[in-house]
Every structure is written in structure tokens, then in C-alpha cells.
Design a protein around this nucleic acid. Structure first.
Lengths: 343, 343
DNA sequence: CTGAAAGCGCTTACAG
DNA sequence: CTGAAAGCGCTTACAG
């Protein structure tokens, strides 16, 4: 530490390389951009000069000249740091493989000006494209504005959102349908659900899929509101377990609320899974950390991140190859928190 | 979705603004950069044209011309998504307030080439500065290379790392000293600790501070290795609770391992805190989610992020004002997992 | 396969 | 207080 100085960086430019190699900068540029129209010998010579001089091209100059910034943005709210973290990692990996950097732009889902905010961000940052994570991806005004700006984007959501040139749609409805089936197969008849925020499309999908599976006679179904937070899970669980005829199976719309159910059950001496089965959603770290470990739904986050990024780069570099739609399958992870209904 | 096209963005340039306002681009530039040497009337006129045309300056052109990219990077490994998430949010907020964007660069602490990797990243991305998060910040080779490149950086760590022009040093040693004192004040004599990875300076600090507090006669101290992961916490807790003379207080070097202690205690019927006190570190979400909620150490992450970013921008824009060192105080958050030693 | 020239959209001394 | 000109370091048709 201390008063170090920060002089202008020594910068080797394309001119230096061209001079040293005895070619024009045009040729150096061609080597840099892997143009096929360069003689093998010339290429090798240029490459060795680049190596010797420790030259790396200025992304800024390249950006200005080519009209691209080689910057990708991820637009995110943060209901779940875990999910965001996993996605970010996957996106960055793919980005760097292709010579792009990742800029993060956090937003507030509930901010009425999100779309304007994102537009302003794109205008000033000049990113080449955006990946919009859920639940922000559900806000149709964002892709609409981006389309007008002519900036490519990929959305990740549980339902298609029309204005996106490309979407990854995770089959959350089908996943929670599996949860419902799982409960029925285990013989449960008194079943409850703790919902997510009603204005999230994903929460609606999770609810719809779950309820769709629960058809049949003498089924008692209780619903409780939740907001994906631990406290709301506690309240819902307390309300459910205080019923005269409490459920023997509870599906909470995320792992955090499911963990709250486990906690309340513990407090009341309700054994899981002997007297109560619990299922969560996300397969986040906490799912494995509670006792018993949670049966839950897993999204293939790394794969989603990779595919989303590749699609976005395709739109940017090769729009003709674009595939606009990619369904994502989710899976039910069986752990210790679910078991046969008590008799 | 569908085959939308992405035409070259309609771009209003500084020339358009200058023409419409009837001034030179030099003047527009001065208005943009808030130069004081512009007449009030001229400024207002230019501003209104900018507004009307929806002009926003190209950060790329500005970058090339000014020799700055207006890009800040955060270099991070991810032992803890929660911590990273909170810091990232704080950094981005401060960045956007000052007209910078945030680029994320994940690395691997254990990669022997991290420093080289970071150097390559800086060379190609041309970021104006970097914020290096723990534990990556402990790797001295990184700030050394950055100093050679002449790129400003700020490190966040539990100990000073000399090559950083500015460091935020969180008083982890003092914090865990408080944990030790807390245990003694509660009357505990058989005390254990689950360590973090031995090659992390932060883990060394946490251990040193804790042990420093534990001086006194008839104290029995047990140490167990851990790697900040849940599994390692389980193993350590099982080993400790299986002792003939088990500890009545356990300090785990992070909340995740502390949660593992709570879990093992639950399995063995060891009541917390009546028979066992447990303390974690981080005050992450899980600290409030386990039962009983964890007494733990909190780092002021948002404040750390803000201060780190402001310091970095100071080095970039106004190096003379740099303050090279900023200590960060941590606090002990009292919850239900600690209580008087059983007699 | 290779080169000279223009241009991307700004900022910056230098003048006036 | 304001302007004409050069330059930042690349890429890109256009020629040859």
C-alpha cells in the first residue's frame, strides 16, 4: 500500500507490431481477427512479434472501429443470490471463451421504471447484448425497448415472453406437476402449498402445475401465500400445522420457505417425513443443509447459462443461425424430506 | 421471439448535437463533461438539444479518446455466493452513481496462474481499476502485477497485502477474539473451534483471534479442520460431540459449518444452547434460518463495497486524495444459539 | 495474399 | 467563453 503512481500504461499498439513485422497494420488486423487471407509465413511472423512485444489489442479501439463493444450484460434482480451466482459463473465462462466480458446490471423488479432504466443502461454502456434473468425477464416492456434499440437479448423465464428474440423457458409447471404426482403416489390426501409472490409468472406456473396434478376424490388442498422469504414460510407453516386436520404433505415454492416448514415442524414435534412430507424448489445449498435434506426441484443452472450465452452470441455474430426457443427440463431430486403418507 | 432483425443502431452523435445547437463539438463535449468554462445560455441550449435528440455519448469513443474505459472490474472466487452478491450490489450502486460499469471476473483461488489470468484479463478488457475480493485478495502476486501494469486496485482482506495501493482490512481477528471472550463470559471451559482452510489468511486470523481470547486455567480447547463446506462441518461436529468430554461451546469459522454443528447436535439430541453453544461467522441468511438462530459475526458488506468503490474511483480520478488503508469493524450478533455453560 | 486511406465518435492541448 | 484540428487504436470496403 502507499502512494503508488499510475502512469499512462505502456501500450504497444498495432502500429508497433506492424512496424516490427514489416507489414501493414491491415495485415496485423487480419491475423488478429483470424482472417483466412493471410499467408502462413506472414501469420507466423506477426504472431511471434505479437508474442515478443506482449501486444494485446485495445478492446476500446476495436469497439469503436467495429461498432461492437464485446460487452455482454446480465440484468438481474436478486431474490436468490445462489441462483444468480451459479448463472453468472456459467455466463462469464462462455463469454470469455468467445472474447466477451460480462457487465452486471442489477435492477428492481418492482421499480415501475425498470424498462427505462435498462434502456438508459444499454445506451450508455453500449453492450452488444443482454441476458435477462428471472423474474425481471417477465417484464415485457424490457425486451420491447431493447428491440427498438436494435440490441439483441435472451430471456430466461418460466413462460415465453414475446418480445425476446430468443428465450429459454424452464418447464416449471411440468416440474411442480411432478411434485403433485409424487405426493399422490406416496398416498397423501391432505396436501398444502405455500405459494410464491402472486405477481411472478413463475409463481403462477408453479402453482398451476402443482394443482393440475392434484385431481382426484377426497383430496383436501390448502393454499397459503408466501413471498419466497423465510418469515413468510414460517407463518404459512404455522398456520397449516395448526389446522385441526393438518396436511401430511407441503410443497413450498422455494427451498427457503421449505426450510421454514422444516423448522416449524421441528418446533412442533412433527416428524419429517414420518408425519409430514416437504418439498422445496431450487435445489439450493440449504436444501442439503436442513434435516432431513429436502426433496426439491433442480434447474440445470450451468447449462441454462451456457445455452443462453451461446444463443446471445449467435444473435450478435450470426443472426441467421438463431433458434428462438429453447425448452429447459427440470428434475425432481429425491431426498429424505418426503415419504409415504401416515395412516 | 422470432427472427427480429438488429439493424445498426440509430445513433445520434456529438456532431448532430453540435449542428443542431449551432456550436462546435468541443462545446458539446464541455457540456457533457461539466466543464465550468461554458456560458449558461450555451449550456442550456446544448442540454435541451441533447434531451430532444435523445443523445447519449458513446462510451466507446469516449474511452478511446480519453484513455479510460469507465469500466471497473471485480475479481472474485466464490466460496460464498451470499457474500459476493451483497458486495457486488454495493459496488455496482456506487459505480453507476459515478458513471462506471462493473465487469465481473471470476477466478480460482487455487489456480497457480491466477495472477497471470488477471493480468491477461486487464490487458484485454482495459478496465480502469479492480476491486479484489477475499480470499483472492490474499494472493500478493495479483496486486504486484497490477502495479506493474499501472492499473489501480483495491483489495478487501483480513490482513494488509502490501502491493495494493489501497486496502480495506476487516478486523476478523478482533471479531473472533470477541467470540472467545463471549464463550468465557458465559462460563464455558470446554471449548472447540472448527477451522477454515489453513491456507486462507482469513482463516488464520479467525483462529488466532479466537485462541488469543482463550487464556486461563483449566481450559480445554479442541480444534478441528474444516474447509467452509457443510460436509466438513458435519465431520468436525461429529468428531467433537463424540468425545468423552465434549465441548460445551463450538465456534465454527463460517455459518455453513455452524449450521452443520446445529444439525449434528439435533441428531444426537444435544440441546442448543442448553448443552451446547454455537457461533458462526458471516451472518448469512442461513444464520437466521437454522434453529436456534445463530450467534455470528457480521461484516458490513454494503459499507465495505461502497467504501472500496469510492476509494478505487479516487485513485483513478484523483490519486492525490488517496487514503491507502481503511480498517473495517465487525460486530458480534447475539442470537439464540449461545447461552451459559451447563453446570 | 497484402496495402494506403478513411472513418468509428469522442477528448484534448492549443489558439483566439 | 468558444472553435478548428489532431489523435486515440483499431476495422473496413476498396484496390491492386
Amino acid at each position: 500500500m502507499g502512494g503508488a503512481e499510475f502512469p499512462a500504461r505502456m501500450s504497444v499498439t498495432i502500429d508497433d507490431v506492424a512496424a516490427a513485422a514489416g507489414v501493414s497494420i491491415r495485415t496485423v488486423s487480419r491475423v488478429l481477427n483470424e482472417s483466412p487471407h493471410v499467408g502462413d509465413e506472414t501469420r507466423r511472423a506477426v504472431l511471434s512479434i505479437i508474442e515478443r512485444l506482449g501486444y494485446s489489442p485495445s478492446i476500446r479501439a476495436r469497439a469503436l472501429a467495429s461498432g461492437r463493444s464485446f460487452l455482454i450484460a446480465v440484468v438481474q434482480d436478486d431474490p436468490n443470490a445462489q441462483v444468480i451466482g451459479a448463472l453468472q459463473r456459467g455466463i462469464v465462462e462462455t463469454c470469455s471463451r468467445h472474447g466477451y466480458e460480462l457487465v452486471v446490471h442489477p435492477v428492481r423488479f418492482n421499480d415501475p421504471n425498470v424498462a427505462l432504466d435498462v434502456e438508459a443502461f444499454v445506451r450508455r454502456s453500449r453492450v452488444d447484448g443482454l441476458i435477462v434473468l428471472p423474474p425481471t425477464s417477465e417484464i415485457a416492456a424490457i425486451p420491447e425497448r431493447l428491440a427498438k434499440l436494435g440490441v439483441p437479448s435472451v430471456g430466461l423465464a418460466s413462460v415465453p415472453v414475446p418480445a425476446y428474440p430468443c428465450m429459454l423457458v424452464s418447464a416449471e409447471r411440468a416440474a411442480t406437476f411432478m411434485v403433485g404426482q409424487h405426493f399422490l403416489a406416496l398416498g397423501h390426501r391432505r396436501i398444502a402449498m405455500i405459494e410464491g409472490p402472486a405477481h411472478f409468472r413463475s409463481a403462477q406456473q408453479r402453482k398451476a402445475g402443482f394443482l393440475e396434478a392434484l385431481s382426484g376424490p377426497d383430496l383436501k388442498i390448502d393454499l397459503r401465500p408466501g413471498d419466497y422469504g423465510f418469515e413468510s414460510g414460517l407463518a404459512a407453516a404455522r398456520s397449516l400445522l395448526a389446522l385441526a386436520d393438518p396436511p401430511t404433505a407441503i410443497f413450498a415454492c422455494n427451498d427457503i420457505m421449505a426450510a421454514a416448514v422444516i423448522k416449524v415442524a421441528g418446533e412442533r414435534g412433527v416428524e419429517v417425513p414420518r408425519r409430514l412430507s416437504v418439498v422445496g424448489f431450487d435445489d439450493s445449498d440449504i436444501a442439503s443443509m436442513v434435516t432431513p435434506a429436502l426433496t426439491t426441484i433442480r434447474r440445470p443452472l450451468h447449462e441454462m447459462a451456457t445455452v443462453a450465452t451461446e444463443r446471445l452470441l449467435t444473435i450478435i455474430e450470426n443472426p441467421a443461425d438463431l433458434q428462438p426457443y429453447q425448452p429447459i427440463e427440470l428434475s425432481l431430486i429425491h431426498r429424505r424430506s418426503t415419504g409415504p403418507a401416515p395412516r
